[in-house]
């Protein structure tokens, strides 16, 4: 439900990065979204075209990686891969565990096209506003 808001935050970050690197647009955007982040990758993929319309990320390919939910057990010391709603140690069953991966919500990497930003970077307000309401 909040994936559109996440995408809009993503686009703002991409715009900052494109301008900082004096690029013209983003070509590929890689995200890391863990099962425990509370964000559904499939819904992000659906919201992305809406949020990116008229921006420097309009033609970018979105790639989403998910890391496994891994925990470290403070009782037996082992590391195990577990289900998002069962974070107990898979080895000894103890619940005193620490999450090692699985809650990521990260912009990992961006590929940029060199050149100065053209009109894509300035997507007009009405265009973007109408894009948001499509959802």
């Amino acid at each position: 439900m909040h994936e559109l808001a996440i995408c809009q935050a993503l686009i703002e970050q991409i715009e900052t990065i494109v301008h900082r690197h004096e690029a013209s647009e983003a070509k590929r955007i890689e995200l890391r979204i863990g099962p425990l982040s509370g964000v559904e990758p499939q819904l992000v993929e659906q919201a992305f075209p809406v949020a990116s319309a008229g921006t420097v990320a309009a033609d970018a390919v979105l790639v989403i990686d998910s890391l496994p939910v891994n925990v470290h057990c403070s009782r037996c010391g082992s590391t195990s891969s577990v289900l998002p709603n069962r974070l107990v140690c898979a080895n000894c069953g103890d619940w005193h565990t620490t999450l090692l991966s699985g809650d990521e919500l990260q912009l990992f990497r961006v590929e940029l096209v060199a050149g100065t930003p053209d009109d894509k970077s300035t997507g007009t307000a009405p265009e973007r506003a109408s894009g948001r309401t499509v959802n």
């Binding site: 070509k27 590929e111 940029l112």
Partner: peptide
């Protein structure tokens, strides 16, 4: 492995939280 792209585009490692502004 992730510093260059096959298409010759510049690859930027970001590793920033998606909700950075928030």
């Amino acid at each position: 492995k992730l510093s260059k792209t096959t298409g010759g585009h510049e690859a930027i490692g970001v590793l920033q939280g998606l909700l950075h502004e928030n």
